[in-house]
């Protein structure tokens, strides 16, 4: 098999990941909880941190990208897995109403649709994304982002302009 999955005991590996991230990047917070390496990084550093994860540390799988609307700031989580028991959770907080963050599609191509989904649901713009269209909602005449806390479930307003 051409793909090399990480080897060795889980604790050692997690320690190696943590050291690897700490040595290369300025992290705001970093810790190991259970089988997870948790990182809090600045939004600008996200692509660099994920490049390290894939190219240097061999964490090959991006599970998903998710966003939490904290009313005024957005928490963007990248869930990585090394496929052998260890996981890396990279978190970045973007301030402001119209969040922008660098894309990671050139590092993990699978992020393509996950980022499109985050854009569709929260309006998070991923700079440099090759194909940032809505994935679920109508392409035209619909300028809401339904998972924002400010979006009320209200049929009349939601479908205005669609009929």
């Amino acid at each position: 098999m051409a793909v090399r999955l990480p080897e060795g005991a889980l604790e050692d590996r997690l320690e190696r990941y943590l050291e690897g991230f700490r040595n290369r990047h300025g992290l705001e917070e970093s810790e190991v909880v259970g089988n997870t390496v948790r990182l809090l990084v600045s939004p600008e550093a996200v692509p660099a941190v994920l490049t390290t994860a894939r190219e240097e540390l061999g964490v090959l799988h991006l599970s998903y990208v998710t966003v939490v609307d904290r009313m005024g700031s957005f928490e963007i989580t990248y869930e990585l897995a090394d496929l052998r028991g260890g996981q890396v959770r990279v978190k970045a907080v973007v301030e402001g109403e119209e969040p922008v963050i660098g894309t990671v599609t050139h590092i993990y191509p699978t992020a393509n649709w996950h980022e499109r989904e985050a854009y569709d649901m929260f309006g998070v713009a991923f700079a440099g994304h090759p194909d940032l269209r809505r994935v679920y909602m109508w392409q035209d005449h619909f300028d809401h982002h339904p998972l924002l806390k400010s979006f009320e479930i209200n049929t009349r307003r939601t479908f205005e302009g669609l009929r």
Partner: peptide, 26 residues
């Protein structure tokens, strides 16, 4: 490589030879 790049899991990933199953690895 392609399968991992595309974030596949489950049977589509395993049919390429990547030995990953959440039940065993996580």
């Amino acid at each position: 490589e392609k399968a991992l790049e595309m974030g596949l899991t489950g049977p589509p990933l395993r049919c390429t030879g990547v030995d990953f199953d959440v039940r065993r690895d996580y």
